[in-house]
Nucleic acid binder design. Structure first.
Lengths: 353, 353
DNA sequence: TTGTACGCGTTATCAG
DNA sequence: CTGATAACGCGTACAA
């Protein structure tokens, strides 16, 4: 009852041709008679042939050069995790003949993005992983890569222009909805709830807009009209303005119950609350930055929604590798879970090693 | 600037010996002169040689037979997920020359376990994955496998007797703590909270005992002595007794706030609450069984802690494969995250496909 | 104690 | 259009 593995040679024998011909059929390198082709394809189906990936990798002794176009972690530490994910994937998958070159741009500087993206285009890699945080500016590059048939994978920000190979990340709308639930849960029956963007250019950031929609819709869909939902855009470039803005929000809304920060910057508000010794506010944010972890453990941040940004980097490289080196089909969208992180379970989300 | 891959042949050349000798050193097959050995090992370190797994798999054309000793999903549907995980891993990893044979036992019948475990021992597999839900009865088998140097991986229940290759699953104690937090969160300042085991033989189930400890310690450590924590062991074998037990618990504790079910059986209590039209109780349980998912969506189960049981099966086979076929080091404990699942994020935990 | 030669399944090249 | 054949890197049997 041995389940023999079907090899190309087996197919060739059964079809009365040589392995070379089978190979040409399987890879559509043309120049095969129609009768041979149909016969071979039939046998392939019948025998359920599956290529041996080890042999494939060994045989095609080819190096695929991947480019990772990601923001600078020394400017915004949020981007440290994706970088580590990319590096872990590279080390796990280099067996399959991939090498990743990182192109690091300044997330607060469009020109830097344009510059690095151009470098990627010039380098003519075999595949690209990119965090398209600048929507408008990214589009021409997508067009270029698309025209040159260079597969590219998006992470962090979901866009579907020019048909990316894949998107890796969260469903931003649902993420906002979940934040609404967490902001609402256990907060009594009425009050003010604040949504705040920090240091962001909203109009050019598709994913933040979708988070905001989801958040608002949570309250609408659940008929929670007794809550007063307000929004703010705060910027730490002007630190006194940042504090002043928070001061006046607190003053004008004494019934403030929850604050939802749409990015990984919840720790900035936590610092403010701590300094002013304000307690009893349900603070919700994103991502396991060291500062955020601290404030979760202190009880000042109540919930973090984990975006698994390391996983986003990892899976991005993973998808490119599977597509290019292993010639496997990949999902065009890979939504990662909306993990709820609290003091009690945070340890199991922090990267060991 | 090409990062050339280091092959055995390269090392041999540099050491002035033949590839065969290098191979003998790398695999400790002895019969190598000491000077050759030290020289080769030095070069291996220096050049950071890493074996090419594709070539290895292709070369050693060996089949590793793995045994999966898991409970019957048709008796308790909880075990469907691990089985699917095992099967997915088998399909993902069969490239590396593994084949998994399943040995399915009845989770409510010790004899069935003993029978199947004996079959596993007789089959003399290369590696074993087992859910040791019967503690006492599992030990002699561990001893046997250990003596025969058959690596075995535990999942679902953490035991450390006889040195398993690895444990995959949750930290049960922390899981209980998290349940305490969820049972407490947003429930006012006092009241009764119930912990219930359903259909379980507690004394022989190490993980349930640890969950209970964690749960109790949450309230102790946070000084929540104003809560009245009670416990119950319920059994559906006697269904009217099951209902009667719940009836009397409800009657004698009108201030009941939360119910924590230590297993995947929360749906049974949800059904009861639904039938009796009791609302306002914060019900917490485990795992994304179809029935539980239903009750989360209906709002009767408030929180589920996801134990990622499919992942447990998957990673178990994964660890065995990496250890045996790829000869890679594996972690001796792999704690999976304590995922908090609510109506709003449940979709991202339900298996697609 | 050591070296050599072959096979694993696939791909790529070259000759027909 | 097709068939034969040489890699790819490792493991192993056999010869020296």
């Amino acid at each position: 009852m041995k389940n023999k593995i079907v090899r190309i040679k087996d197919i060739a024998e059964k079809a009365g041709v040589s392995p070379g011909t089978v190979d040409r059929v399987l890879h559509n390198r043309g120049r095969v008679s129609d009768e041979a082709r149909t016969k071979i394809l039939g046998i392939v189906k019948e025998l359920k042939y599956e290529p041996n990936l080890s042999a494939r990798v060994l045989g095609t002794n080819r190096l695929y050069r991947l480019a990772a176009l990601i923001p600078d972690a020394s400017v915004d530490f949020y981007w440290d995790a994706p970088r580590r994910g990319v590096e872990k994937a590279e080390s796990d998958l280099k067996q399959y003949g991939i090498a990743v070159e990182q192109y690091i741009f300044d997330p607060y500087n469009v020109d830097s993005f344009l510059d690095k993206a151009s470098q990627v285009s010039e380098a003519n890699p075999d595949g690209i992983l990119v965090a398209p945080i600048y929507y408008r500016e990214a589009l021409p590059f997508f067009q270029d890569w698309s025209a040159r048939s260079i597969p590219f994978v998006l992470f962090n920000t979901q866009l579907s222009d020019y048909n990316p190979l894949s998107y890796i990340g969260q469903d931003s709308y649902q993420s906002g909805m979940l934040a609404g639930k967490l902001a609402h849960y256990g907060q009594g029956t009425s009050g003010t709830i604040l949504l705040a963007h920090i240091d962001e250019d909203i109009s050019n950031s598709a994913h933040l807009i979708r988070k905001e929609q989801g958040f608002n819709d949570y309250f609408k869909q659940n008929g929670l009209s007794q809550y007063n939902i307000i929004r703010a855009e705060l910027n730490r470039a002007d630190l006194s303005g940042f504090h002043y803005g928070l001061d006046s929000l607190m003053a004008s809304h004494p019934d403030l119950k929850s604050i939802y920060i749409t990015s990984s910057k919840a720790y900035t508000v936590a610092t403010y609350l701590e300094q002013k010794d304000i307690t009893g506010i349900n603070l919700i944010g994103y991502d396991l930055l060291p500062e955020n972890i601290d404030y979760v453990n202190k009880g000042i941040i109540r919930f973090l929604i984990n975006q698994n940004s390391k996983g986003q980097g990892y899976w991005g490289i993973y998808q490119l590798t599977h597509h290019l080196a292993l010639k496997r089909a990949v999902d065009s969208v890979k939504y990662l879970p909306l993990d709820i992180v609290t003091k009690e379970n945070i340890e199991y989300y922090i990267d060991k090693e």
